[in-house]
């Protein structure tokens, strides 16, 4: 626990040691705002809610989260610090969790900094703050799931660029697997059961349910399960690939 926390602190601080943190946060906020106002018609809809803001989060994360996760293990392997790191008296679980929680906390900080949107709708009308809170939780969990995927994939390569591209591609698949883009590929030859399974893995489906105010425990469990599985895979992959 203590070791996990120390790793967490070092990792989180390392985001802020480079311009990455500030660039990430600024771009995230600007893009979240742009999408919500111009594409989501935040004002013109005439509704006091944050749905136009939240509905673009999966797409924002698709581009931005791989930029956070790509360095998690690829950089350690590239610079060779992984050898120092993993010969410290820490377990693989502590190493993986410390890094993951730092990245997730960073995503959380970026998310919290969107609070002016929440203040704005509360000034303009009386939104259902329960739904907004649920949406924030949903968005945070979804970011965690993307990060966990990216972390595991980052363990596969020494190149942060490869980690970025592969993560973006895999995350894209998870995002849209329920949508017509993917379903039309398999439609016609795959059994209906498979279509349902694919749709089940769509982040979009689960996230859209949450931001519409339909809080179903199963949606939350879905994201948490994805994280747990990917973190496990992450530990296995680091062990497998660290020597290359």
């Amino acid at each position: 626990m203590r070791s996990t926390f120390i790793i967490f602190q070092r990792e989180l601080a390392s985001y802020f040691a480079t311009p990455l943190a500030y660039i990430f946060i600024v771009i995230f906020l600007v893009m979240a705002g742009t999408f919500a106002f111009f594409i989501g018609n935040f004002f013109n809809r005439g509704q006091a809610d944050l749905q136009p803001f939240f509905q673009f989060h999966p797409w924002l994360y698709l581009v931005l989260i791989p930029a956070l996760s790509m360095r998690l293990w690829a950089e350690e392997r590239k610079t060779g610090t992984i050898e120092l790191f993993l010969t410290l008296p820490i377990s693989m679980t502590q190493a993986v969790l410390g890094k993951f929680f730092a990245a997730w906390a960073f995503a959380g900080i970026a998310l919290i900094l969107t609070f002016p949107f929440w203040i704005t709708v509360n000034i303009l009308g009386s939104p259902d703050n329960g739904v907004i809170l649920a949406s924030y939780i949903g968005s945070f969990l979804m970011a965690g799931a993307y990060l966990a995927i990216g972390g595991a994939l980052s363990a596969l390569t020494k190149s942060q660029i490869i980690a970025f591209v592969v993560t973006a591609a895999v995350c894209f698949f998870f995002t849209v697997s329920g949508s017509s883009i993917v379903l039309s590929f398999v439609n016609g030859w795959a059994p209906q059961g498979l279509l349902n399974d694919l749709a089940f893995f769509s982040f979009l489906t689960h996230f859209n349910a949450i931001i519409r105010g339909v809080i179903d425990l199963r949606d939350l469990v879905f994201f948490i399960s994805v994280m747990a599985f990917c973190l496990f895979a992450n530990a296995v992959l680091v062990d497998l690939k660290k020597a290359d």
């Binding site: 070791s3 120390i6 790793i7 070092r10 601080a13 390392s14 040691a17 480079t18 610079t79 060779g80 610090t81 050898e83 120092l84 010969t87 410290l88 008296p89 820490i90």
Partner: peptide, 30 residues
Amino acid sequence: KRHVGYLPEGAPGYPDMTPSGFLAFVARIR
């Protein structure tokens, strides 16, 4: 591992950290 001090080949270090930050991290984790 607690009884071992290890200098890996090429003496890698976290590039963004300062030696004092790095040593403080290693001290805490040990």
